[in-house]
Design a protein around this nucleic acid. Sequence first.
DNA 1: TAGGTTTGTAATAAAACTGTAACACTATTG
DNA 2: CAATAGTGTTACAGTTTTATTACAAACCTA
Lengths: 226, 226
Amino acid sequence: MNAKIFIVEDEKPIITLIKYNLEKEGYKVSSSENGEEALKEIKESAPDLVLLDWMLPDLSGIEICKQLKKSAQYKSIPIIMLTAKGEEEDKVRGLNVGADDYVTKPFSYPELLARIEALLRRSKPSVAQDVISFEDLKIDRITRRVYRGKKEISLGPTEYNLLDFFIKNPKRVYSREQLLENVWGNDINIESRTVDVHIRRLRQAINIAGSKELIRTVRSAGYSLD
Amino acid sequence: MNAKIFIVEDEKPIITLIKYNLEKEGYKVSSSENGEEALKEIKESAPDLVLLDWMLPDLSGIEICKQLKKSAQYKSIPIIMLTAKGEEEDKVRGLNVGADDYVTKPFSYPELLARIEALLRRSKPSVAQDVISFEDLKIDRITRRVYRGKKEISLGPTEYNLLDFFIKNPKRVYSREQLLENVWGNDINIESRTVDVHIRRLRQAINIAGSKELIRTVRSAGYSLD
DNA sequence: TAGGTTTGTAATAAAACTGTAACACTATTG
DNA sequence: CAATAGTGTTACAGTTTTATTACAAACCTA
């Protein structure tokens, strides 16, 4: 996870704080304290997510948001607004303008992080990629090969599709029904317990000796790659 | 999303239609064709949003709206009024009475849905959001994980649902009956004291050493997340 | 088509969760 | 302060959910 995050915020200490923490998390962080400049830099650097202060000296955050969201090219970049407490009404406007989420200052860092992760998860499904990896698992869609670490793994067609589906949205929990619908196909009529068996086969295949379990069972909910 | 929507409308076909569509969307839908009854049921079932027909045989929609909006406990429930074409004047009255939005009949379903979603996002972020937190408790609905501070907490299905329900309306007190209805489901038949046991289990799980109690007992009334 | 793979199901084992009831405790009331 | 009503705790048997295994049928592939 090394997504690029851009911060627009005029208070330096806040930038420093967020930057420090996010970098520790493995994100690449750049920032700007100035609205005009920010917009330019965002367009140049194409970050995966933007943290946007609501109150800026020159161009207001909401203006930047508007600008980005009306551009076909940039509107898919998720934006989190940072609003000061008491600007309740502004929250609404922020969302109407197209911000994807907002966090009220003063915010707790874990909350900010959680929201960042949630947005990234939602907006960056690795759908189109030829080679995707999760932890030490790698799947190459062109050659249709799967690796755990260095070791190649052989999967049956169903297990392959299952893994391919899981890896598009790692950590997300899917019910058996969702899996049947997405991996098997809409109209088939298969026992939902069958999923268990394929999960088992997939687990068996990707768990080479001493490696950690990658598929999580969530009781009464389903499974996730995690 | 899993928000609960309540429909008050005397024309059955409309109820059926809306219900069918909303349920497909993942909402839990209940309804009433009768004003008096509706008010009671709304107070009991604590929906996240109410669709309110303007013209009702007995108690008028506007009256229900008034009642709800003047009650501190229920006034935060967003209300969408369904008004017949030409009742322009009523719209105004509707809004004055505290309705949060209105839709003119005949309405297009996409429009209704859009308004429902906008309203939920705006006024009930806790219902529509993937990640919610209260104090240092955090719940991620996508990955179905729960954290207290930094520490992950493992919950059984019922405890998870219970917490998920509580966190939608922090500080609000729910009776055991309300909890049974909302967390367990409408039609089950369970001893109300059973709730105590699950509250206990939830408490035990989320109270890591030295942390403060988050679930409040309100004697002779119920429990709240507080 | 023979020989190996893969698949879905059903049966069984194992694990996790649930609801009750019984008893302990605490607040409330007169 | 005793009686009462409301909660907290605990243990446990029963239930639900998941894991594992075996197998026959369907499917490939050479």
